[in-house]
């Protein structure tokens, strides 16, 4: 049986992990490779690196990070942030990433999903959706949540699958950062409407939240950042909790 995946996410700015960490056993908490290694040892099923480098000139640093991570971490990892063309995808995949995550560019230019899927395979193309509730539906936001679009999140997820996306990384802007739990309704609605895996993101604060993401939200995976960075729980704590409650996880 396929295991429910636990995915730590790291924000990277000019080659350094930001939103600091409190790992006592890590010498340099800003080093993406060292932090990735820590999560790998803890039993993370995958990793996501989100590049938030604003300066265009410094973006090449990311490629070097990807290359280093690929040499030391033997689980799949995804890189997202600022990918605008298939050439950006190629550079990241060639450096050793297994998947690329695309958000704003996919909304602006949906054919990019198909082009990426044709060139590199659907399994490489993760479409990240930032969704925010608007009465009875969810709007899609781009540019790091700053710009509202006309797209409906559920419709967009369905379209992304049709265009060739391999997975949906679904972040609820309403729950993100709250530590009050994933947006179960949003996650469940989208997960039941599409045939590709959904990664729930935004709001993880307790062990129970991960259980809910899978059981109630029907997600295939859960992504979190803060809960791991601040060492509230290690990946293995979450997995132990889930396994004790009958969820299939890789222990």
């Amino acid at each position: 049986m396929l295991a429910f995946r636990i995915i730590p996410c790291m924000d990277v700015d000019a080659g350094r992990v930001v939103k600091g960490t409190r790992f006592v056993n890590i010498k340099d908490a800003g080093d993406p490779v060292e932090l990735a290694r820590e999560y790998y040892v803890q039993g993370a099923d995958e990793l996501v690196f989100l590049d938030i480098t604003a300066s265009h000139e410094k973006r090449n640093i990311l490629i070097e990070v990807v290359r280093k991570v690929a040499k030391q971490i033997f689980i799949p990892f995804t890189v997202g942030g600022g990918i605008r063309a298939t050439e950006d995808m190629r550079a990241i995949l060639k450096a050793g990433a297994d998947k690329v995550s695309i958000n704003t560019a996919a909304v602006k230019k949906p054919e990019l999903i198909t082009e990426g899927a044709m060139k590199f395979g659907s399994q490489c193309i993760v479409i990240a959706i930032d969704a925010k509730r608007n009465k009875n539906s969810w709007d899609v936001y781009i540019n790091g949540g700053r710009t509202k679009t006309e797209k409906d999140a559920v419709e967009w997820a369905i379209e992304a699958e049709r265009l060739g996306a391999g997975e949906i990384l679904l972040t609820s802007m309403d729950t993100d950062g709250t530590k009050d739990g994933f947006d179960i309704e949003l996650t469940k609605t989208i997960s039941e409407k599409i045939g590709i895996p959904v990664i729930a993101s935004g709001g993880a604060g307790t062990l129970e939240h991960f259980l809910d993401a899978g059981k109630k939200g029907k997600a295939d995976a859960a992504l979190a950042a803060g809960i791991f960075h601040y060492q509230k729980y290690a990946v293995r704590d979450i997995k132990k909790y889930l396994a004790e409650r009958g969820v299939c996880v890789r222990e």
Binding site: L2, A3, G166, E167, I196
Partner: peptide
């Protein structure tokens, strides 16, 4: 068969 999500992506035993 399209009973489960295809492709299978993830960890299996």
């Amino acid at each position: 068969k399209k009973k489960l999500k295809v492709p299978q992506i993830g960890w299996n035993s």
